[in-house]
Design a protein around this nucleic acid. Structure first.
Lengths: 348, 348
DNA sequence: TTGAAAGCGCTAACAC
DNA sequence: GTGTTAGCGCTTTCAA
């Protein structure tokens, strides 16, 4: 009698009965398969509307082996715990919103949803892999913020379709999207030198991240080409606070600085604050260039000259690649590199 | 032969065969149901380990009618489109990270995942409801940022377990968690008056949000009790930029202001910047109080005195309530109100 | 072009 | 305490 129970949500069976056809036909109409008589299509659609039918995702997944959802996994270094400001940091960084925005822009039109997952401890990572293996999602976009992250390898081994937000630290057969970090740093170096800076330093991101390394090395290399053999650097961790501290330290060691390249805008904001606190005018005394073109760049006084990465486009491309891998599991891993650009504002 | 295909991932059937027991028994040990001989449990666990078995979530959902996932839906006002800075705004606002953090703190230990969904147009909302009805998730946590949002009603009608992040604009049989907004505003008023401010104004949030209204009215009421019959106000939309603009406008109309209550920290940050640009010292000339105690409060120079809502706790409570409703679909809607506190820093 | 029927992998009565 | 069995709701051969 279950097919007559009005309290249960309608199934294909109900619709079929109402339309006077078989389940198979209704299924075909719903899945847009041709070879269905237009008249019957009409009838079926009417029946669907009448019954208020919506397909059951679990039943569908069981046979298609597709969930129509992907995971956005944010992975963070080992030593941090859940209570640390990690979450606040990542979600607060404008970076994250732009990434989500780019991803959702391609996922939503295709009816694919995004589950947000965190992996900030070893335990969480193991759990996560197990979870992903259960077939909860069709693929994974991984935002990994440190080098020794085992997740890229684990994902590869698990055979899950995946795309990284950065070139993996260790070469791996996995797709990734990245920006030409060194080229961006070169843009900054050229600009600083071009405006006449002679004593230049840099504040880098965490050096266990490939992106941070690339920016630092790219910057030094470009400065070297301009004849500056040595560029002092202090390491930060992408927060405003560490940017501030790093600047204070730099100022103590090199009081006559006249230019700083900071590896992201949030730290640059902190650096500008520190500079201000120490009586330096920006850009008159010290020119500052950030990285990202996040809204922190605009929030800063003066507004930051910065290096822009097309984050939304990059994220969208990640989603594209992932969808491709899901549709064609055999497709070889691909890499897509975006070019950063210089955005000139007032700080340099 | 399918049960012998080594390329397919192992099923209960395989494990059962290896362990020399029935599917049901394996299922029992997996789901931790007692009444299973300890010895057999051992054997089964060994078989599970040996085969590398992981349960198929779709199959499980099909029979249990549970997905073990909930949706975090962020709903935004009608007129905004996907390309608008909406996403950047919401994800950039420190508010969001704290909420996610609180939710995940209770969800993850229970093995429940969180899908992130957006509803920023009427179309997206309709789609969303359809999607949710498919049984993709067990329940919904709704962060609604405007009053006329039809989602709370639609969710109620759809009979989906749901919890709102705010008292619904129109009374509805639905659970929600909120902060005592007016009480928070009163804290700000008392502090401003206490430090001697005589000409006080306020910058409110969007007035189509109950929380904004409550803060504004609560502030005015408290000021009235202190004898201040009229408090000028300008409406912002919670961004730094609108805070800045609102402050400029206030300054133009009331040049002798000596105190401002701003409905969130981000706008307060903008207000402080504007004050600074107009040669006013904070707090000497004008005292400023924010709301939220987000990290914008610390980023501000001077650091903001602000009203703190225990966002993480509130979010955690939302998750708790939702899980309760999922476990007991018949339980009546509940409301939980948290008390805000005053955090004194340097701006007031 | 349509229908009948066989599962997808799992849980939960119900029997033993 | 354990096994048998009947589905959950859907897609997809295979026949007709």
């Amino acid at each position: 009698m279950s097919s007559n129970d009005p309290s249960a949500s309608p199934t294909l069976e109900h619709v079929a009965k109402v339309a006077g056809v078989s389940r198979a036909t209704v299924s075909r109409v719903i899945n847009g398969i041709r070879n269905v008589d237009p008249k019957i299509q009409e009838v079926v659609r009417a029946a669907i509307a009448q019954t208020g039918y919506v397909p059951n995702q679990a039943a569908r997944s069981l046979v298609t082996r597709r969930t129509n959802s992907v995971a956005l996994v944010v992975s963070e270094a080992e030593h941090r715990t859940f209570d640390d400001p990690f979450l606040g940091r990542i979600f607060t960084d404008p970076f994250f919103g732009r990434v989500v925005s780019g991803i959702l822009g391609v996922l939503r039109p295709r009816g694919v949803t995004m589950a947000l997952m965190l992996a900030e401890t070893q335990e969480a990572r193991t759990q996560l892999i197990g979870y992903l293996k259960q077939g909860h999602v069709d693929g994974v976009i991984l935002i990994s913020t440190h080098a020794e992250d085992p997740l890229p390898r684990l994902l590869t081994e698990a055979g899950l379709p995946a795309v990284l937000s950065e070139r993996p630290f260790t070469p791996l057969p996995i797709s990734y999207v990245d920006a030409a970090q060194a080229a961006g740093a070169k843009l900054a170096a050229d600009h600083l030198v071009g405006r006449g800076c002679r004593r230049v330093a840099t504040i880098s991101g965490p050096l266990d991240m490939p992106a941070s390394r690339d920016r630092l090395e790219g910057f030094r290399e470009a400065m070297a080409r301009h004849g500056h053999a040595y560029v002092p650097s202090v390491e930060g961790n992408f927060t405003q606070e560490t940017g501030e501290r790093a600047m204070v330290q730099l100022l103590a060691e090199y009081p006559d600085l006249d230019g700083v390249f900071v590896a992201n805008d949030l730290m640059a904001l902190g650096a500008v604050l520190a500079l201000h606190d120490h009586g330096r005018r920006v850009p008159e005394d010290v020119a500052v260039i950030g990285f990202d073109d996040s809204n922190a760049a605009l929030a800063c006084r003066p507004p930051l000259t910065t290096i822009r990465q097309p984050l939304e486009d990059m994220a969208a491309r990640m989603a594209d690649l992932l969808l491709e891998h899901i549709d064609d599991p055999g497709s070889p891993p691909r890499s897509v590199i975006f070019e950063p650009t210089l955005v000139v504002r007032r700080s340099a």
